[in-house]
């Protein structure tokens, strides 16, 4: 009773994936079985192949067959790799090479939950604009300040608090002398030097 894939809001699952534990972990989106080349079709142009490294160790030829059958279908082709062995370095290296040649993107998951989460997210984000990962500006002052100052290494959030309460503004921090900074609780020579470097060393040496 295999049906043709629909176009709705469901993830279409290849019948060969029946019994895969990650199916249990796909939450919040519908699933339906359908006749497709890949294992999971999570969007009109997105197909996912699933491979567990443990299985790969036993049947190294399996993934090649699947990729071959894939041909040029789908715009975004994902190989969802379940990293469930400790000796992962070799197989990942080899798979990276194969995937690069065949225009496949690898995503690595470590647990079935994580793998299920990836599938869910791919479906949910199918039509989502990339605003989430673009530059944003709408943050409140304390967050931006903390973000900015902690980008200097050795400065932690307690220090940000100290700087803010005892000096006030960023401009005041910029003006403060090393001795003044050194006097603040929790500030040693190294930290003060890092802060001074960030503020006062020139961006470029124009030579």
């Amino acid at each position: 009773p295999v049906v043709q894939p629909g176009t709705g809001n469901n993830i279409i699952v290849n019948p060969c994936q029946r019994g895969n534990p990650i199916l249990e972990c796909v939450k919040n989106v519908g699933k339906e079985f359908g006749d497709i080349v890949v294992d999971y079709q999570v969007g009109r142009t997105t197909g996912v192949l699933f491979l567990s490294l443990r299985y790969h160790r036993l049947h190294p030829e399996y993934i090649h067959q699947r990729i071959e059958r894939l041909g040029h279908a789908y715009n975004l082709r994902i190989l969802l790799l379940m990293c469930d062995v400790t000796e992962h370095q070799e197989p990942i290296r080899e798979l990276t090479k194969i995937c690069l040649v065949n225009n496949i993107t690898i995503m690595v998951a470590w647990t079935p939950e994580e793998a299920g989460f990836y599938l869910t997210t791919y479906k949910q984000f199918e039509h989502k604009p990339p605003d989430l990962i673009k530059e944003r500006v709408d943050k409140d002052y304390p967050t931006v300040l903390r973000n900015a100052l902690t980008s200097i290494s050795k400065v932690n959030k307690t220090d940000v608090e100290t700087l803010r309460t005892s000096l006030g503004s960023v401009a005041a921090i910029a003006r403060a002398s090393s001795d003044r900074l050194q006097n603040l609780p929790g500030f040693g020579q190294v930290k003060v030097k890092r802060i001074k470097d960030a503020f006062e060393k020139p961006f470029r040496n124009n030579t």
């Binding site: 975004l76 994902i78 984000f125 199918e126 989502k128 990339p130």
Partner: peptide, 10 residues
């Protein structure tokens, strides 16, 4: 993870 997903989709 979801940011990575969005990156590959974009």
């Amino acid at each position: 993870q979801s940011k990575l997903v969005l990156l590959t989709l974009t």
